[in-house]
Nucleic acid binder design. Structure first.
Lengths: 218, 218
DNA sequence: CAGAAATCCTATCGCATGATAGATATTTAG
DNA sequence: CTAAATATCTATCATGCGATAGGATTTCTG
């Protein structure tokens, strides 16, 4: 397909990818149209097929691009948390790492305008599995839930494999999504016009309270 | 259009509505097709237009049907909670009502197989507003968040209008959705094959812990 | 049992979509 | 500089969609 030789096309490829990320972010796979993407990338329709084979190929390429960017952002934080787990940290330390992770994730998901589209892409694909489910599940969701569950188990003083820890992890992560997938509706409920630094701080503080409570509860 | 006279058509109408609820539950408005709905209802295509005017009209009718059924199920519980709020109940009483509401909602959303489709319909429409947003927001979401936020405020001993109470309400409700919108992926994480009574009990117990924590935190 | 009203069907329209054919333009290699 | 490889374009195809036209059928009214 492409990738080697002829360096001009690489820039086209990136332009298409950027347009596709935006399109697949704000619409679903079937609702977004290749024409709309081609227009936004200022190329003609068949160029998409030339570079990515098909609409589905383009979609998969988007997923891979997202995974890469997400890794850059979250990897250091996750690594630090895993190190803390290995070194038998205290419950309080586990809570601290949970707060860092949740806070970073909240900032990442809710903060930047570009990332917002990616987050929608990921959320949709995980809720309603499509061509990119596997890569997103294995690269993002599974490890994220894993480390969260282990930290929660540590914070509550229960075994790492306890299903209750995983349930709490899912509840915690899912609650974060109130202001991501559910952004529009949450803005309406809160009567906010946007989520700026002030609003983000309030959300973080509520999350911190939740996390403190998780640790103290049992 | 229809509604009066000729009683035969009423049964057709119901058959169409049932097929549409299932279709719009498992696919989005644009992904579900009128042909598929007509087939499932064992009628020909134009019958949909005859009874509901258009695809969008049918969609709206689905939303209204859902609201009605939801009301039947949740109204008594919500009413009892509101009474408790009026009569200046204690923080512990507020927590108890929160548990009842969250538990009932969890059972309602996650339990029945029929309701599962409706819940997906509602969730999708609230995340990505379409023709039925207003009725769902005003009839389901807004009052639900409202009463939850007031109970949380009471449980935490903060003013009813405190934005923090609303944030916590959104986080709580959103966490519930881990096993609703996110059912597939949560089953995978938990290595469950379905959400039966045993699994539901574990979820309820985790939610109760969350609610206890909310009350005790601040 | 008529005749009118309502319900439902077959056939088709117009449109948007993803994909492809085939020609043209651009870039690199020798 | 030329020729092959690569990249892009215009024009078109086949398909599936929501909607409608116009006629047949069923159901109620008197």
């Amino acid at each position: 397909m492409s990738g080697n030789g002829y360096r001009k096309s690489e820039e086209t490829r990136q332009r298409i990818l950027a347009a596709a990320l935006e399109a697949f972010g704000s619409s679903s796979f079937s609702e977004a149209t290749t024409r709309q993407i081609a227009d936004a990338a200022r190329v003609s329709l068949p160029v998409l097929q030339y570079h990515f084979g098909s609409k589905e190929g383009l979609y998969r390429a988007c997923a891979e691009a997202i995974v890469e960017r997400y890794r850059e952002h979250m990897a250091p934080i996750a690594t630090r948390a895993r190190e803390a787990l290995r070194s038998n940290g205290t419950a309080a330390a586990a809570r601290k790492h949970l707060k860092v992770i949740a806070g970073a994730l909240a900032g990442f998901l809710i903060g930047s305008n570009e990332v917002k589209h990616w987050a929608h892409f990921v959320g949709r694909e995980l809720r309603e599995p499509g061509p990119a489910f596997d890569i997103l599940y294995e690269s993002l969701w599974k490890p994220g839930v894993e480390v969260t569950a282990r930290l929660i188990a540590r914070a509550r003083g229960i075994p790492e494999k306890d299903p209750a820890a995983r349930i709490h992890a899912l509840l915690l992560i899912s609650s974060l999504l109130a202001f991501q997938s559910g952004r529009k509706i949450s803005l309406r409920v809160m009567q906010w016009s946007k989520i700026g630094p002030k609003e983000l701080a309030m959300i973080r503080s509520a999350l911190d309270a939740q996390i403190d409570a998780i640790g103290g509860g049992a």
